[in-house]
Design a protein around this nucleic acid. Structure first.
Length: 258
DNA sequence: ATGGCCGAGATCCTCGGA
C-alpha cells in the first residue's frame, strides 16, 4: 500500500497536477494540505472519476486538509483537539492494512512567522496541544501514522542554509524541540530512519530561483509509531511534481507499507 | 548586496505562506 503526503497549495488551482500525480504514482491514499477551499467547492467529482473517495476538512482561502483515497477511511475526525483559532489543520481517520487498523493523522502545522508575533505563539500552542493528544492516543492505539506539512526543519542537514533559518519559526530550537518531543513519545521520522545522511528537500520557495538552485527545506514528514516500523518497506520524496508547469511549492513524500 | 512568487478574494491591493 502506498500513502502520500503533499501540500498542494490550493487543490483547485492544482487539480491537473494532482490528477497527474495520482495517475503516475497510483498511490492508494493521498493526504493533502493547504487545499484553500471550503468543502462545498472541493473537486469531489474529479477524484471520483479516477476512483478516489474524498474526506475533506475545508476552510475558505487558507489552510484545509483532506484525504483522497481508493480505500474507505473510517471514523473521520475533524476535531482531534481544540484549535484556538478554529483553523482547518488536522483530519484523522482509520484505515485497514490486512487485519490491522492504523490511525492516519493528516496535519498542516501553522507556519509561525514572524517569531515575535501571535502567529508564533499559535504554532507553539498548536504543537503542545497536538503532542498531548498524540500521547493520549498512543495509550489506546499503537499503530499511528502522522503525515503532513509540519513546518519544522528537524536538523541542519534538512535545510540548504541553516544559518539563514536560525531565527525562523521553522527552525527555532524551541520549535524543533516540540518535534523531538513528539518523536520521543515513540515515533520515527521515517525519511531520516531510512536515509541517515541523505540531503533531500520537500519544499522550495517560489522566489529567488530556489528550485533551480536547490535551495530547499525538508518540512513535510511521515512519523511512524515504533509498533509499525517493521511494516514500512520504503519512503521516497518524488521531486517530479515540483518541476512541472504551475507547481505547488511542495513536492510529495511517499510511504510504502507491507 | 538585494530581491526576484503565488493563490484567494476582493478590487486594481492585501494577506498569508515559508
Amino acid at each position: 500500500m502506498l500513502i502520500t503526503s503533499w501540500n498542494v497549495n490550493s487543490v483547485r488551482a492544482r487539480i491537473l497536477n494532482v490528477l497527474d500525480y495520482l495517475k503516475s504514482s497510483n498511490t492508494d491514499i493521498l493526504m493533502i494540505q493547504e487545499i484553500k477551499t471550503e468543502e462545498k467547492n472541493f473537486p469531489f467529482q474529479e477524484f471520483k472519476n479516477v476512483g478516489y473517495h474524498s474526506y475533506v476538512f475545508g476552510q475558505k482561502s487558507y489552510n484545509g486538509v483532506a484525504f483522497v483515497s481508493k480505500k474507505v477511511i473510517d471514523k473521520i475526525d475533524k476535531a482531534f483537539f481544540v484549535d484556538e483559532k478554529k483553523q482547518s489543520r488536522i483530519i484523522v481517520g482509520n484505515i485497514k492494512n490486512k487485519s490491522e487498523t492504523i490511525k492516519l493523522v493528516n496535519i498542516y502545522v501553522p507556519n509561525g512567522n514572524p517569531i515575535d508575533t501571535d502567529k508564533y505563539k499559535y504554532k507553539k500552542n498548536w504543537l503542545n496541544s497536538f503532542n498531548k493528544k498524540i500521547k493520549k492516543l498512543l495509550t489506546v492505539n499503537k499503530n499511528i501514522i502522522i503525515g503532513g506539512d509540519f513546518n519544522v526543519i528537524p536538523n541542519e542537514i534538512d535545510v540548504h542554509d541553516s544559518k539563514k533559518y536560525e531565527n525562523d519559526a521553522l527552525f527555532k530550537l524551541e520549535i524543533r524541540k516540540k518535534f523531538f518531543e513528539l518523536l520521543n513519545l515513540g515515533f520515527q521520522d521515517i525519511y531520516r530512519y531510512f536515509n541517515k545522511n541523505k540531503q533531500e528537500y520537500t519544499f522550495w520557495d517560489y522566489t529567488s530561483g530556489a528550485w533551480q538552485k536547490n535551495n530547499g527545506l525538508r518540512i513535510d514528514h511521515f512519523l511512524i509509531s515504533n509498533n509499525l516500523l517493521d511494516k514500512i518497506k520504503n519512503v521516497n520524496i518524488d521531486k517530479k511534481p515540483r518541476s512541472k508547469i504551475k507547481p505547488s511549492d511542495h513536492t510529495p513524500i511517499e510511504l510504502e507499507i507491507i
